[in-house]
């Protein structure tokens, strides 16, 4: 099993007043096919960690490697290309375009990949099938329930067959039953081989998942599944 994502002694400081150290020496890796939950109280640095893992931001020090590539060595354009081809994001607020159909929203996951429109639509239809929303392709997001909207967002993250899917509080805007259903979907995708990191502050939800990384004050304080493996030195 190869390492998809690797953080080595990563710190992140924000030049706010006063300066905030959101991450303080975090080392952590994710192997292909893993489903990892990152848990911790609000303000513990989970979102900051997700942004660094997703190359949306750069660390103040330390290295971030995605599919073996050192993020610091890549230009802004290359990082964009990396996100387009290898990383899928799911956000708490869904971020769906209300003026577009469900299918178009999912297809836009491939908008910046260079794929043809027909290919994008075909793959979007397929991705919608994987999240169980094949019947909703022509709907508008406003016609869907919260859980369905988050499924659309998950389909959009999956549509490019990324090396890793990063989800920041995907259940944060959902009631607990719907949240459990979303986690179940993530588990099913994990069974199918998708590599997923999911952030949550909900310990009960996290308890369902195979590996849990606990954060507090910008540090990892526990990691249930940190099994030794040969790729990490």
């Amino acid at each position: 099993m190869s390492v998809v994502l690797e953080l080595d002694d990563v710190t992140k400081r924000y030049d706010a007043e006063p300066p905030v150290t959101a991450l303080a020496g975090v080392s952590f890796s994710v192997r292909e096919g893993e489903l990892v939950a990152i848990v911790g109280p609000s303000g513990s640095g989970k979102s900051t960690l997700l942004h660094l893992m997703g190359t949306l931001d750069l660390p103040s020090s330390g290295t971030v490697r995605i599919t073996g590539l050192d993020v610091a060595s890549l230009s802004d354009r290359e990082l964009s290309g990396l996100r387009a081809s290898r990383i899928g994001f799911v956000f708490q607020q869904f971020f769906l375009a209300e003026h577009a159909t469900v299918l178009e929203n999912v297809a836009d996951g491939l908008l910046y990949s260079g794929a043809e429109a027909s290919v994008r639509r075909a793959r979007a239809a397929e991705a919608l099938g994987r999240v169980g929303l094949a019947q909703r392709a022509g709907f508008r997001p406003t016609q869907l329930s919260g859980g369905e909207r988050q499924r659309v967002a998950i389909a959009r993250a999956l549509v490019g067959e990324p090396a890793i899917v990063l989800a920041d509080e995907p259940t944060g805007n959902l009631d607990s039953a719907t949240g459990i259903a979303i986690v179940a979907l993530l588990e099913a995708l994990h069974e199918a081989g998708v590599t997923i990191v999911v952030i949550t502050h909900d310990r009960d939800l996290a308890a369902r998942l195979p590996r849990r990384v606990e954060m507090l004050d910008g540090r990892i304080v526990a990691d249930t599944g940190l099994a030794p493996h040969p790729e990490v030195v």
Binding site: L56, D76, R77, S80, L82, R83, A84, F95, L111, Y112
Partner: peptide, 13 residues
């Protein structure tokens, strides 16, 4: 947020 989403989806500056 639309701009942020697009950047996350791989849009360049």
């Amino acid at each position: 947020s639309e701009i942020g989403l697009r950047r996350a989806l791989g849009a360049t500056r």
